[in-house]
Computed example of a mutant assay.
Amino acid sequence: MKYKMYLGCFFMVLVLSFINIYLLIPSLMKIFPIADVSTKVLIGWDNAIERFMLMVILGPFVETLVFIFAPIKILEDKMNVYSIGLISCVVFSLTHFYSLQYVFLSFFTGVYLFASFLLFKKKYSINIAFFSVSMIHLLNNLYHFILK
């Protein structure tokens, strides 16, 4: 029976990743057009392996931990979840200050990731929410890493 839970979770990650990569981000990029910025410029490294490790493997897990998981765990008894989400998304977007347009795009991506976290937390658990949202973020970054 547990495999059905993981299969359902896996399916949700794929669907939410698809929505983010193919619907949300292209729509937002029409509103907030961004000049073509390579991943090399974004994180400032020439070495593709280091960029891949930081942007695709390490970054999504650290950012999910710092900007979603920890704030919810620490603040959920002190603030409502929407206030936590707003603060979290603003801070998340400000750490992506490559351009003003990129900040706006990152804010809405942060909202999407935060809402996805709440969905997984409600349906499964906070630990599965952490892993699932990290995977959605990872797949998003992998997509952009491959394109650039």
Rank of each mutant, 00 (worst) to 15 (best):
V91D: 06
M29W: 03
Y22S: 14
L105H: 05
T109I: 13
F97Y: 13
L58I: 13
D46C: 04
E63H: 03
E50S: 12
V37W: 03
L119Y: 05
I34H: 03
L100F: 15
T39Y: 01
T39C: 04
F104H: 10
S17K: 03
N47G: 12
L58T: 09
V15L: 09
L16G: 01
K78V: 08
F69G: 05
K73L: 12
M29R: 15
T95K: 05
Y22R: 14
P26H: 06
N80T: 07
F145G: 01
F32P: 02
Y3L: 15
I43A: 10
L139M: 10
G8P: 08
I34Q: 14
V41M: 06
I43K: 10
F61S: 10
F32D: 01
L24E: 04
N47S: 15
N127P: 00
K123W: 04
K121F: 01
Q101V: 05
G59S: 04
D77F: 10
A35K: 15
F97T: 10
T95F: 06
Y22M: 13
V66A: 14
V66C: 11
M29I: 10
I57T: 00
W45S: 15
I84H: 06
L139Y: 06
F145C: 01
V62E: 08
F92K: 00
K148C: 15
D36A: 14
V62S: 09
H96M: 05
F32I: 01
L147K: 12
A48C: 11
I84M: 04
P60M: 06
G44P: 11
N47I: 12
V41F: 07
L14E: 08
V13P: 02
F130D: 05
I68M: 11
T64L: 01
D36S: 14
Y82F: 11
V111H: 05
K73E: 12
F18D: 07
H137C: 06
Y82N: 08
L94Y: 10
D36Y: 11
N47K: 12
V90Y: 07
K78T: 09
V37E: 13
F117E: 03
Y98I: 14
M12F: 13
N80G: 06
I128A: 02
L94K: 08
I146D: 00
V13N: 00
L16A: 01
F32H: 00
L118F: 02
L119Q: 00
